[in-house]
Simulated scan of single mutants.
Amino acid sequence: MRRNLRWAVAGLTTFVAFAVPVWLCAAVVLPSLLKDPAIRWALASALGTVMASLAAVWGHGFATRAEGTTGRSASSVQATAERAVAIGRDNQGPVSTGDAQVPAQSPAVAPAAPQHPASSPVDAVTASGNRSIAIGGNNSGPLSTGDQPDSPRP
């Protein structure tokens, strides 16, 4: 739905959220309880204002959301194979999918991590191969899949 159309829907919803409660209260429900029309319409207008303000808050969020946003998270992080690792955002620690552990770098010896702005998660991160690593953001930690060039493959 285009942005202008969403704003029109939000405005129409806000108007209806004001007009319907005011008319129902002032013309249908309250005449039997309150005989003075000035009090009846003032009370109905106050209720309509509250309902319209709630509709306006909803309408603003509805009209300004990004195109194609459904309100739920569309990201998917999956590690489907044996010893696979999938990380949806940035990684700062060591990751190993092999038999040997990756030694953690000591803070005194480790080079300064590059200062990357926080990355937003990607829509899908999938590590589907054995011992695979998939990272959806920036990596600043050591990685190891356990594959050694000089060792025989299992």
Rank of each mutant, 00 (worst) to 15 (best):
N91E: 10
P107N: 06
A46Y: 04
G68I: 03
S76N: 10
P107M: 08
S75L: 02
S45N: 13
A84W: 03
D36Q: 15
V85G: 03
S73T: 07
A104E: 08
L47T: 07
W58N: 08
V102W: 04
A81F: 05
T69H: 03
V77S: 02
G98S: 09
M51G: 09
Q101P: 14
R65W: 00
A100H: 13
V85S: 04
L34C: 01
P37L: 14
A66Y: 00
A63E: 11
S45G: 15
T69Q: 04
I87T: 10
D36T: 15
V95Y: 02
G61T: 08
R72K: 10
R83T: 02
K35L: 04
E67R: 13
Q101D: 13
L54Q: 12
F62V: 12
V102A: 15
M51N: 09
A79S: 04
A104R: 14
R65N: 07
G98E: 02
A66P: 00
E82N: 10
S96I: 02
A84G: 05
L43I: 08
G71R: 05
D99T: 13
L54A: 12
V102H: 05
Q92P: 00
Q92C: 05
S75H: 14
S76R: 10
A63P: 09
Q92K: 09
R65Y: 01
T69K: 04
S73R: 12
L54P: 01
A55C: 08
W41D: 06
A104C: 07
